[in-house]
């Protein structure tokens, strides 16, 4: 099965570890990849995630060594394979200009300010991954126990009823 991945980009190791820890409940269904720079993230997306599956959610810090988070997101949005990917900016210091670029050119899905509330991070992740699977997946059953079951159920119930063959 092609699995849907979560990508976290954050240069401070402790912060990265905390984000991954908060997202641990999703790991069973959505493998998590963690990287420290945008450069490394590009490589991971190209060589690790896309060959095996798809990228459902990218959570990025803005200020990173080298390429910044917003420009990485714009790059993701420009590519066919990662256009539907939901993008979250998790940062303390993205200026107005960078945020505008992120919204307009990378279809930013959510802005989380540091320090974040773990429950909020989990709720946002759950909501955005639900959006993503509703948009891209036909078999929704594998996600019923982790994501927003109400919305997934609604979609399954509103489709035509299958008959037995």
């Amino acid at each position: 099965m092609r699995r849907i991945h979560i990508l976290c980009v954050e240069d401070e190791p402790e912060v990265l570890e905390a984000v991954v820890r908060d997202l641990a409940p999703f790991e069973e269904v959505f493998p998590i990849e963690a990287t420290a720079t945008a450069d490394e993230a590009r490589r991971v997306v190209r060589d690790v995630i896309l060959p095996r599956g798809e990228l459902g959610l990218a959570i990025c810090d803005h200020i990173l060594p080298g390429e910044d988070g917003v420009s990485f997101m714009v790059h993701l949005h420009a590519q066919e394979a990662t256009r539907a990917t939901r993008k979250v900016l998790l940062t303390a210091q993205a200026g107005l200009q960078a945020t505008i670029v992120a919204v307009n050119q990378a279809a930013l899905s959510h802005y989380l300010a540091k320090p974040w509330n773990p429950d909020e991070l989990v709720a946002v992740t759950r909501r955005l991954l639900t959006d993503y699977v509703l948009e891209t997946q036909t078999n929704l059953y594998p996600f019923l126990s982790l994501l927003e079951a109400d919305r997934l159920t609604e979609r399954i119930r509103s489709g035509p009823l299958p008959g037995d063959e």
Partner: peptide
């Protein structure tokens, strides 16, 4: 009274959310 497949589809939406 319903197709087996439709029933399974509906009941799965009842049970899968509680498995977590």
């Amino acid at each position: 009274f319903m197709s087996n497949t439709a029933t399974t589809a509906m009941m799965m939406t009842v049970v899968l959310p509680i498995l977590a």
